[in-house]
Amino acid sequence: MIPESLICLYTISRRETTRIFRIWVQTLVPPVITMTLYFIVFGSFIGSQLSGIKGFEYMAFIAPGLIMMSIITNSYTNTVSSFFSTKFQKNIEEMLVSPTPNWVIVLGFVSGGVIRGLSVGLLVSLVSLIFIRLPLHSFVYTALFAFLTSFVFSLAGMINGIFAQKFDDISIIPTFVITPLTYLGGVFYSISLLPDFWQMISKANPIIYMIDGFRFGFLGIADMRVTTGLGMLLIFAVVLFSINLYLLKKGTGIRT
C-alpha cells in the first residue's frame, strides 16, 4: 500500500514534469542555446587566447561554472513561474481544498525545479563535450553539489512565487540578485586571482561555494573547502524549506 502523501507528491511532481516537457521550447531549449554561445564566445574565441587557470584550459575551467549557472537559473525560474502561474490561474486551490499536506506541496513544486535544473544541467554538460573533454574527478561531489544547489534554488524560487503578486515580481530577484551573484560567483575566474579585499567580499557570496564545489567534482581543484559549501547548502535547504512551510501554513498569498 503506497502512503497517501507519496501519491500526492507523485501527482504534483508528475504535473510539474509534464509542464516542463510540454513547454520544452521555453524551458529546455533557451538555456542550451545561451550556454552554447558562452562556450563558443568565452571558451573557444576568447579562451584560446588566454593561459589556463590552475593547470586547466580556460574552457575546462569555466565549463562547470556555466553548467552550474544554468542549474541555478533554471531551478529558480521553474518554481517561481510554475507556482505563480498556479496561483494566477487559481488552480492552486485544487491542492488547497484537498488533504495534501503543505510539506508535500513544497516538495512537489521543488521536485519540478530540481528536474528542470538537472535536465538543463545535463543538456549543457553534453553540449560542453562538443567543445572540450571534461574530466570527472568525483561523481559523488558533482552529483551532490548539482542536486543540493538545484534543491536550494528551487526552494528560493518557491518563496518568490508565494510572494509574487504580478508577473513582474517573478523576474526581479533573478535579474537583480541571482544573475549578478552568479557572474561574480567565480564562473569565469578563480577568486584566488583577486586582490585580498575582493576575495574577502567574494566569500560572502554563497554562490561562489556552490560553483567551487561543483568544479571540484569535475576538475579536483577548489578555492575553498568543499565541505564548507556542502554544509552551507544543507543549512540553506533546511532554512528555506522551513520558510516555505511557514508561509504555506500562514496562507501568505494563497488564502484570505
Partner: peptide
C-alpha cells in the same frame, strides 16, 4: 467534501483527464 467553485480554477493548458485525475491524486487516490 467536494467543491465546485464559482470561478474557473483549473489550468487552461492542461488536458481534461489530467485535471480530473490529478485532483484524485491530491486526495491520495492511486
Amino acid at each position: 467534501i467536494g467543491v465546485v467553485p464559482q470561478e474557473f480554477n483549473f489550468s487552461i493548458f492542461e488536458k481534461v483527464e489530467d485535471i480530473v485525475c490529478q485532483q484524485a491524486g491530491y486526495y491520495g487516490i492511486g
